[in-house]
Every structure is written in structure tokens, then in C-alpha cells.
């Protein structure tokens, strides 16, 4: 949960300095990067590592079992792509907003903002969820994986490579959400059928019509043939 003791005492409107971040995150982050929203790379962490169900990093709640937050900004620790980040956010901030605005990780797209297009798909632990309908504070204590965390600086996730190989994109705006949805499917089912893939992305909207190639790319990684 959000850290009520405020171990990262930034002023509410101040961006966290790189020094407040763990070493593993530093290489990918500069203050300029934050401000320009340049996007954070995975900072060399392997994001397909084992992901725990619930992190023990949750702050201890107050003794009566209630932790009071907000309505003003509160410091919150988010575990994103293998690195810890502290952000100052209001409780109403969605995970998508925290990622995109506070952390400058703009790979996650917001399209419908109502949980019906899955453009904003990220993983909470390894489960794909809509970050537009998740409050950032509800991501505390979980491992958040974003599209930026799926690849490292020099190596794409096999599915990302397959998306490129099969031209499974046009304008590219739905692509991060599609990749996160299909990659999550492969995590829990390494050999999906096309039927499985269609169902796994049945909440993801693409307006350019890249679906056939998304199916093909995912099937390619799954190592199964179209009619399997």
C-alpha cells in the first residue's frame, strides 16, 4: 500500500529525482527523460522473471485496519518493470495516468478510457488488466509490467519480434495493448490455438484492422500452425 510514513518526502508537485530510485532503474531514467516523457526502457531488468502473487512490500496499515489516503497527493511506491518508483499522486489517479504522466512511460495508450478497448493493457503481476480502470494505488504491492518492460534495450520479446515480422500493426496505437494481451496469453498457455487468441484479445480494439496478422504473429510464437 502507499507508504503512509512518507519515506520519500518530495513536495507534491516535484518529480522524483533519479537519486531516489534504485540503481537498477537509474540507467534508464534522467530528469530530462521524465520531463520530456521520453519513456523509460526496462533498465536492464529481466521482466519475464518469476512474478510473485502478492508482494510483501505492502506498507503495514494502521492498527485499526484502515489507511487514510487523500484527497490530496500522496507518495506511492510503484513497482514497474522491475524497478521501484515513488510518485506523488491523488487517489483518483489511474494506473494509466501514473505510468504515462508521472513516470513518462507513454507506451501504454489510453483510447476508450472505460475498459472496453484494452489499449491500456498492462500486467498486474502476470495478469493483463486495463490500467485506465485501475487506480494507481491499487497497483501498489503488485508487479506492474508495461510494454516498455517486455523488451530490453537490445532484445525484443519474441512476440514483439513476431509482430514486426508479420506486420501485425498499422498506425500502431493498439499495438502495445495487443502485445501485452497476447504475451499474457502465451505466459499462461504457451501453445494457444487461433480460437484461444481470438478470445484472449476479444476486449482489444484495433481500428486499422490488424487482427489477422496479430493472430498469425501470436501463432508463430506459439509454434502451432493455423489449423492446430
Amino acid at each position: 500500500m502507499p507508504d503512509p510514513k512518507g519515506s520519500h518526502p518530495q513536495a507534491p508537485d516535484e518529480q522524483p529525482e533519479p537519486s531516489t530510485l534504485p540503481d537498477s532503474a537509474r540507467s534508464g531514467i534522467t530528469r530530462r527523460g521524465f520531463l520530456k516523457g521520453a519513456g523509460l526502457t526496462a533498465a536492464g531488468t529481466a521482466l519475464l522473471d518469476g512474478v510473485q502473487a502478492f508482494s510483501s512490500e505492502t506498507a503495514a496499515p494502521a492498527t485499526n485496519g484502515v489507511t487514510e489516503l487523500g484527497p490530496g497527493p500522496v507518495p506511492v511506491r510503484l513497482h514497474v518493470n522491475g524497478a521501484e518508483h515513488t510518485v506523488e499522486i491523488e487517489p483518483r489517479t489511474t494506473l494509466a495516468e501514473a505510468l504515462r504522466i508521472n513516470l513518462g512511460m507513454t507506451g501504454t495508450k489510453v483510447v476508450c478510457d472505460r475498459g472496453v478497448c484494452s489499449g491500456c493493457t498492462v500486467w498486474l503481476d502476470k495478469m493483463p488488466v486495463n490500467s485506465c480502470m485501475t487506480l494507481a494505488i491499487d497497483a501498489v504491492g503488485h508487479h506492474v509490467t508495461t510494454i516498455e518492460g517486455l523488451s530490453s534495450e537490445d532484445r525484443m520479446h519474441p512476440l514483439q519480434a513476431a509482430f514486426v515480422k508479420h506486420d501485425a500493426m498499422q498506425c500502431g496505437f493498439c499495438t502495445p495493448g495487443m502485445v501485452m494481451s497476447c504475451a499474457a496469453l502465451l505466459e499462461r498457455n504457451p501453445h494457444p490455438s487461433e480460437h484461444d487468441i481470438r478470445h484472449a484479445v476479444s476486449g482489444n480494439l484495433c481500428r486499422c484492422g490488424t487482427y489477422p496478422k496479430i493472430f498469425a504473429a501470436t501463432m508463430d510464437v506459439a509454434g502451432t500452425t493455423r489449423n492446430a
Binding site: 502507499p2 485496519g65 484502515v66 489507511t67 489516503l69 487517489p91 483518483r92 494505488i137
Partner: peptide
């Protein structure tokens, strides 16, 4: 809108 939240365990 802005809101406060009581996080309960």
C-alpha cells in the same frame, strides 16, 4: 472528481 480513500484490511 477528487476523493479520499479509506483502504481497509
Amino acid at each position: 472528481n477528487r476523493f479520499s480513500i479509506a483502504d481497509c484490511s
